[in-house]
Amino acid sequence: MKRVLKWLGNLMILASIFLLVWLIAGNMNSRQQQNQFLDAFESIKAEAGFNMPISADEQEPFNDKTQGFHGIEGVLTIPLIELELPVLYGADSVNLSRALGAVANMDRPGEMGGSYAIAGHQAHVFGAFFNRLHEVEAGTRFTYETREGTMEFEVFEVKVVKPHEVDVLDREKDIALLSLITCYPANSNKYRLVIQAKRVDTLTP
């Protein structure tokens, strides 16, 4: 009996070590992938001279067969929650497993009278993504850098809505609306946390 208990104890220790190594390796891989996207975005800016607007018709969802990193929309930076992440075009499962995803078929980011949305998972195992988005509140400022330049936004409303309440993304007159979306509460798909912000700057090239 003692041998069995000892064997089970050793097995549990080995399983714990394996799980820890798996978590560390997964987190490192996620970070490495995000850094690759960020580096690729910097290369795109340099090659384009950072002054070549990309129309919505020219964008393609990112996939492994896409030459280069055409699906990169930009980089979202929220200092309050220490977030700096690439945003890919398309909020599909593949993109959201790697980074943040811009909801397809919306207006260009920062467009007056337009609506643009970025979705992200709360990745508690690998990476960070939007797991601290709930800390953002009205008055919080953040930037969104695209190939056209860097835009600054200020949060004016925080909402919790049901998944079918997509009208929360409707355009609003006289503001450039940008919404950040994640599931709420943590580890649940019951609601959506929606952070709504308006552009408060002129384009900075």
Rank of each mutant, 00 (worst) to 15 (best):
K2T: 15
L5I: 13
W7D: 12
G9S: 03
G9M: 02
I13Q: 12
A15P: 07
V21I: 15
W22R: 14
I24K: 07
A25D: 14
G26E: 11
M28P: 03
R31C: 08
N35C: 08
L38W: 05
F41A: 04
F41H: 04
F41W: 12
E42N: 13
A46Q: 10
A46P: 10
E47A: 02
E47H: 11
A48W: 15
G49H: 11
G49W: 08
G49S: 07
N51H: 14
I54E: 03
S55I: 02
S55Q: 00
Q59V: 00
Q59E: 08
E60S: 13
F62L: 04
N63H: 02
N63Q: 11
T66C: 09
T66N: 12
F69C: 08
G71Q: 04
G74E: 01
I81C: 00
L85C: 09
G90L: 06
V94R: 14
N95F: 07
N95M: 02
A99W: 08
G101M: 10
V103M: 15
N105G: 06
M106V: 05
P109E: 01
G110Y: 02
G114Y: 11
I118G: 02
A119G: 08
A119Q: 07
H121M: 00
A123L: 02
H124M: 08
F126A: 02
G127D: 11
G127C: 03
A128N: 07
A128G: 03
E135A: 03
A138W: 01
A138N: 03
F142P: 10
Y144M: 03
M151R: 10
M151H: 02
M151E: 06
E154S: 09
E157T: 15
K159S: 08
V160T: 15
K162R: 13
H164L: 00
E172Q: 01
L177N: 01
I181A: 02
C183D: 05
N187C: 14
N187Q: 13
S188K: 03
L193F: 14
L193T: 11
T202P: 10
